[in-house]
Each structure stands twice: as structure tokens, then as C-alpha cells.
Amino acid sequence: MDSPHGAAVKAENFGLKGPRGWAFRGVGLDAEPGALIAVEGPSGSGRTCLLLALTGRMKATEGHAEIAGHRLPKHLTAVRRIAALGPVTGVNELDQSLTVAEQLREGALLQRRYEGPVRALLRPRGERRAGTQARIDAALTAAGLDLAQLPKGPRTSVRDLERLEAVRLSVAIALLGSPRLLALDDLDLKLSDAERAAAWTLLRSIAARGTTVLAVCSDAPDDVTVLHTGAAEPAAHTEDIEDSEDTKGADDALAEAGRA
């Protein structure tokens, strides 16, 4: 797996208003490529909507942002091509009915589909298979997930993973496409203090390798760039905004993220 050059993330007076009010408003940010950015705030304060807007999955209604020079809200498709989603509830979740190996293969197949069918067909089947496995192995290493340590190895059911293991699996699948921006929702949800520290160590290592990382959390470490969200007005619900004409729905978000 290639080490991608991270995306610079900039925003000025960035806001999104839905049927029930402002999801977020007045967001400003200027982060260099390879930065680790935390979106911090209480549940219901628009954190997830901001995450999805900055990755091109929702269309902002005020101000603008730039992701690797692609201006939002105008260039949503261009941003979606370079930004990958980790776990986002209701949008980009792991399939609990699959094994870990099946989830990885499905993610790799979907990613290969977006690389271009003509280019893929020109490569011998054995070469494609070896290339896919190499990318999976590299992504697992980067995500810190050792399949041999799971109860049933790669045959472990996704539903049987511990929370931190599931986060690592989601990150590995997201990294298969060598994104310039990696975004994760609810990073510290249901994690112990030790697990939370391990999760942030993981994200620091990914950022250090060149990928810009954006993570929603309740309490960010002191050494990361922090975007604070609040709920001065009633926050718009994610599902309300996704179903509007101005944004893509959950299924499209999955496809554009290159995730299963």
C-alpha cells in the first residue's frame, strides 16, 4: 500500500443547516497535510454532520472549505475520491454477518471496482490476487490489527470483535484505497482509558505516515488540533440531511467511500 500525501484541510465560516436547524455553523480550520484533527463536542452537537461535510458526503449551506485544494461545497465528488470513512453509524458500518476475512475481501473488491474495470482486466488474475492480498496485509499492519490474535483468526465473526478491534478493522478497510484524508466517527465510544489511548496512538501513526486524519470524539488529547462543536440551535439530524436533495444518502456514501 502506498503512503499517500495527506490533504490540507481548510474551512471558513463553514456551516450546514437542515430541516431542524443548524447542524454546525461558523467552523474555521487551517490544517496542514498529515495533521491529526479532532472534532470534539457532546453527542448531538453536529460532530458527525461536520465530519461528513468535510469528506464530501454532505453539502454545506454556508461558507466554504477546501480539502487538498478541492473547494466545498462545489466539488463534492472530487473530495469523496480522496477521503475515506472509517466507522460512521448509520452510514458506513461493518457487516455483522460477515467474518473478518470476508469483510476485508469485500472492501478490497469494492475498492478495485473504483480503480477502473479496464485497467483491472489488463492484469493477470494471479497478479490481481497477489496485489489485493498485499494491500490487505499492508492495511492491517497500518491499522495494528493482527488477525492471528483474534479468537478464530480471519474466520472470526465481525460481531464478535471487541470495540477497539472493530475500529482497527474499519480503519484497515478505509486505508485500502490509500486515502489522503481518513475520517472516523465516535472514536472514543465504549472504549476504556487504555483502549482510548491505543486508538489515538493508532491515529497518530497513520498521520505520521502522511495521511490527514479527522476523528470525532468526546474528549481529545492535548496534542491534536481540535474543532469544537456546540448546539446553540437545535442540531439537524444526520438522517434528515442525508435524505435531502442537496446530499447523498447513506448507500451512496458507502459506495463513494470505497467501503463495504
Rank of each mutant, 00 (worst) to 15 (best):
D137K: 07
D146V: 03
E162K: 15
L161H: 04
S205W: 02
P179S: 13
V167H: 11
L147W: 08
T141Y: 14
S192W: 09
L164R: 04
D188R: 09
Q111C: 11
A199K: 11
S157H: 12
S170W: 03
V171E: 05
A194F: 09
G131Q: 03
A130V: 04
R196D: 08
E127L: 14
A148E: 14
D188C: 04
R209F: 04
R113F: 12
D95P: 04
R209V: 04
D146F: 09
V213G: 01
Q103H: 15
A183S: 08
E93V: 07
L169I: 06
A120R: 13
K190G: 09
G144W: 04
A83K: 05
V167Q: 10
G177L: 06
L150T: 01
R180D: 02
Q111F: 09
S170V: 03
A183P: 02
R163E: 02
S157E: 06
G126E: 02
L150N: 03
S97N: 13
P87H: 10
L169K: 05
I206W: 03
A138R: 06
G210Q: 03
R125Y: 12
G90S: 14
A120V: 15
L140V: 02
T132P: 00
Q103S: 13
D186F: 06
S97Y: 14
P87E: 10
D160W: 07
